[in-house]
């Protein structure tokens, strides 16, 4: 009888080990919802680049973008830039939520957002602006 329980425990141990190695280090990003957001952001990116370059728009710590220097934009263009920022942030918020959803873990959204915040800044081009952890703006 104790032999049977021992075998159950052994089986349990191997089940846990195999599951741990399977589940760790994997993030699902290949869903229709995610690729649709990617496509939308891809199309908007070329419109945003001039404003990243001029310093009008910069990257924030929470994985979004914000107006950094409104004076770098003409009054006529300002409304258009604000709409671009709003649309981009809406896509980014949906992206982080969809990745959390694709991994069946909505609690991951905060960490996903933080990860993206770091990676966007890391991959931003020289001369672009980003918000540092202390809230101040820094040029790459």
């Amino acid at each position: 009888m104790s032999n049977q329980i021992f075998r159950l425990m052994l089986l349990l141990f191997f089940a846990m080990v195999s599951q741990a190695s399977f589940a760790s280090g994997n993030i699902e990003i290949d869903t229709p919802a995610i690729s649709q957001i990617e496509k939308s952001m891809q199309q908007r990116y070329s419109q945003l680049v001039p404003f990243y370059t001029s310093g009008a728009v910069g990257f924030t710590q929470d994985g979004l973008i914000a107006m950094h220097d409104a004076n770098a934009v003409s009054l006529a263009e300002r409304q258009m830039v604000n709409s671009l920022i709003a649309a981009e942030n809406q896509d980014r918020n949906s992206l982080y939520l969809e990745i959390a959803r694709a991994n069946n873990n909505l609690a991951w959204e905060v960490e996903i957002r933080h990860t993206f915040g770091q990676r966007w800044i890391k991959l931003a081009k020289l001369g672009w602006w980003y918000q540092a952890t202390n809230g101040g703006w820094v040029q790459k």
Binding site: I34, E38, Q42, Y45, I112, T115, W120, L123
Partner: peptide, 15 residues
């Protein structure tokens, strides 16, 4: 894995 996934998506968007 999240770093890798983020880089993959960001590079795709920045193409």
């Amino acid at each position: 894995a999240a770093d890798e996934a983020a880089d993959k998506i960001i590079k795709k968007v920045m193409q």
